[in-house]
Design a protein around this nucleic acid. Structure first.
Lengths: 239, 239
DNA sequence: TAGTGGTCTAGACCACGAA
DNA sequence: TCGTGGTCTAGACCACTAA
């Protein structure tokens, strides 16, 4: 169902039709009619199966909805599951400015836990990056990230980026899937000082193991101030 | 792309082919070859487009993977996002036996918060169901669920079920999408007594708004013991 | 070279919705 | 009744892979 553009870049017919329809309806309100299949057959001079192939792709994509006997219409946006986002993106989504203060960034030898999580062997080189993360200036989160040095050579030398996920994305390693665990705990003294809360306050502990394709690109442990941060998760598809 | 079974229940050809292939490959290891399209054309005496329609559905579903020039193969299972599960299902997935003790189950008038969350008006009738939930006998969670009485008439009279989601499913109202919020907090005295923890211990507070289609079927607030419960979330698709 | 999936044609009949 | 999408046919040529 993919592109496979021909030699010089001539688009396949079903792709032409698909993109024509996409541009027609993009921006239209849900429920707006798309051109009928037979109308597109005439306009492009192609067979109906070709038009159907184009429309099928848009239906699978969730852009269009077919109603037998009536026509094809712009679908209302589907309710989807949460995207996998970085702290920076998540704060920006909430209208807050994310800032990071690097407390530590160095090469280390992986301990047993980190090695297992990163699918490495104990003692392999990893990058340990500890940051205090603020939103609109308020301490929000203390994060320890561990990265597989082999996947991002020269990372420490290249100057630390603001957004880890942007930096990974630039290397074609943007996380596509992650498993998170979340629990509540009392904050430690060291954490309390950095997060500027009372020792013993309840905090959220968040661990993430993020993959790009089959590669584990990030393992992290974070502590979030619970008075400043609520985790939001959407589950399920469609509806 | 749906069934639309004909009159007496005769299956459509592409459905026959699809289900034949599904039964053939179900249980096969990822990478196992599926029958070629032309082989299925012969076996079923149908046109190739019909076979492709059947295979397309299985590819979209993630069961098969096409490799041009080589053939069609069983796809490795995709890494998917977390399913929307109930407490009962979640505990069972962890190998624990879920039990529920109903502390309260009655008709109430919706307050402003619950009314808004359930898309009702203040004062409308809702069912308030408070349960202490145990896993393998250990108190795990205290949950207050609010349900729209109009959607589940006779719910209170029919005897409370073990699993709310099973009961909703039996009425065609199984949640398909939910938004959850999670935060950490200190446990209250009343909660501490019921959950059998020290007052002031850190706990996870979890709120859920669950929809079945466009209808809000459940609004709940839960408190989880953090020493017994860690929330797991998978984000993203495929990889 | 033989087999595979990817694309495409030019028709056909059906059930369903709206007028 | 007419237009819509749903299903289906019996071919065709292409690019690619593997032997």
């Amino acid at each position: 169902m993919d592109e496979l553009l021909v030699s010089e870049g001539r688009a396949l017919k079903h792709v032409q039709v698909r993109e024509y329809v996409r541009s027609l309806v993009s921006g239209s309100a849900p429920g707006s009619p798309a051109p009928s299949e037979r109308e597109l057959v005439h306009r492009f001079g192609v067979a109906r199966m070709t038009v159907r192939q184009a429309m099928d792709a848009l239906v699978v994509e969730g852009l269009l909805e077919r109603i037998p006997g009536r026509g094809t219409f712009v679908a209302r946006p589907r309710r989807v599951a949460s995207r996998l986002t970085s702290f920076t993106e998540e704060m920006s989504r909430r209208g807050l400015l994310a800032e990071s203060q690097t407390l530590l960034a160095r090469r280390e030898q992986a301990g047993p836990g980190v090695a297992r999580a990163l699918s490495l062997s104990e003692g392999d080189a990893v990058i340990h990056w500890r940051r205090l993360r603020r939103a609109d200036g308020v301490p929000m989160c203390l994060e320890d990230a561990y990265l597989n040095e082999v996947l991002i050579p020269g990372f420490l030398q290249s100057g630390m980026p603001t957004s880890l996920y942007d930096a990974l994305g630039a290397r074609g390693l943007r996380p596509t899937w992650a498993e998170d665990s979340i629990t509540a705990d009392a904050v430690s003294e060291e954490e309390a000082t950095l997060l500027e809360v009372e020792p013993g306050t309840a905090v959220l502990r968040h661990s993430r193991r993020a993959l790009s394709g089959e590669k584990v690109v990030e393992v992290s442990r974070s502590v979030y101030r619970s008075d400043r941060f609520t985790l939001w998760v959407q589950l399920g598809q469609e509806s």
